[in-house]
């Protein structure tokens, strides 16, 4: 506190502060000084209180648990060092299966999602009647919860009476058991994610497209560049920071994928994500270890590795984003 008091509040001319002090109705100059120094901290304090209790403390607790063999089934807890991490990284095929699934579904949902969003945004960027209607219509899926999405699409992808299989039947394709086949299940779950998020991302791209100067397009058009050409050589490069932004958002969401694959199957053992773990994600595996195997120490290790994965993928994205914006 003392160091703070010797520093004049930056940005405020000292003479002005004095004037302020003089005209404070309360007539307590020290109160004003206190107000200037303390208020910013008071204003940001609520977040840090909540974050400390419900964000930071659980993380450190998780780190501690991950170093033990804690389990509700053990009467005692012993310290096991890094054993959990060693086992997880070197001797746990099911974990790596979950990592593979998570990244697979992440790619399978994100790539078409962003491409479709780009195409939709490009279309919306034209001069069309009913702009607002189209925007509202494509954004509407975001009002549904992931639970609702999972329920609706699980029925669309039902094996026996599902809409998807009916459509396939119309074009003469045999029905698919969407939960049995790895790729089919990835596809089904990816469409759930995409349905909810394509419109949202399209709006973000649309906003970015609208801030691109029209003159660039006009100049290109005068040079005889086709629309397709303009799209790839003007729109896409200008959109790169926005694309990176949406990528980061999709990364955080995609690597935590949980509700859709969980509710894709019903009944006991839904956490195992299919008979051979075809669509078990890391979060599902985490809960399986925690809640059906009761290896809490090990679950702590899984949680931390999941976090490290998200952090490092996001960090790579962030570096890319910085690189690109500084290139400009």
């Amino acid at each position: 506190m003392s160091s703070l008091e010797t520093t004049a509040p930056p940005g405020l001319d000292p003479s002005r502060s004095r004037r302020t002090a003089r005209r404070t109705p309360s007539g307590f100059p020290w109160l004003t000084r206190l107000d200037l120094r303390l208020s910013p901290y008071l204003f940001v304090l609520p977040f840090f209180v909540i974050f400390a209790i419900f964000g930071v403390y659980p993380i450190f607790y998780t780190v501690w648990i991950a170093l033990t063999d804690r389990s509700p089934l053990n009467a005692t807890i012993s310290f096991v060092g890094l054993d959990n991490f060693v086992e997880l990284l070197t001797n746990d095929p099911q974990f790596w299966n979950a990592v593979w699934n998570t990244f697979g579904m992440f790619v399978l949902s994100t790539v078409p999602q962003l491409l479709l969003a780009l195409m939709l945004a490009n279309a919306l960027n034209r001069r069309i009647r009913g702009q607002m209607f189209f925007r509202l219509a494509i954004a509407m899926p975001i009002i549904t919860s992931t639970a609702v999405v999972a329920l609706i699409f699980s029925m669309i992808y039902a094996r026996d009476f599902g809409l998807a299989n009916w459509l396939l039947d119309l074009v003469g394709v045999d029905p698919i058991d969407w939960r049995a086949n790895r790729f089919a299940s990835w596809f089904a779950i990816s469409t759930m994610v995409d349905w909810r998020w394509v419109g949202y991302n399209a709006l973000i791209y649309l906003a970015a497209m609208q801030s691109i100067s029209k003159d660039m397009y006009e100049a290109a058009a005068l040079d005889g560049a086709s629309r397709r050409r303009q799209f790839w050589s003007i729109t896409i490069p200008q959109l790169r920071p926005t694309i990176i932004f949406t990528l980061i958002i999709s990364t955080i969401g995609g690597l935590q994928l949980f509700t859709e694959p969980l509710m894709f199957t019903s009944g006991s053992g839904a956490l195992s994500g299919g008979s051979e773990g075809q669509f078990q994600t890391i979060t599902m595996y985490l809960l399986e270890v925690m809640n059906t195997r009761f290896r809490w120490g090990y679950a702590g290790a899984v949680a931390l590795v999941l976090f490290l994965l998200i952090a490092s993928v996001s960090f790579v994205n962030y570096l890319l984003a910085r690189r690109i914006s500084s290139d400009k």
């Binding site: 089934l73 006991s268 053992g269 195992s272 299919g274 399986e288 059906t292 009761f294």
Partner: peptide, 14 residues
């Protein structure tokens, strides 16, 4: 004690 977890694994194989 971990009957349910093992049972899930065997049922999945079936």
């Amino acid at each position: 004690p971990k009957n349910q977890a093992v049972r899930d694994a065997v049922e999945n194989a079936l």
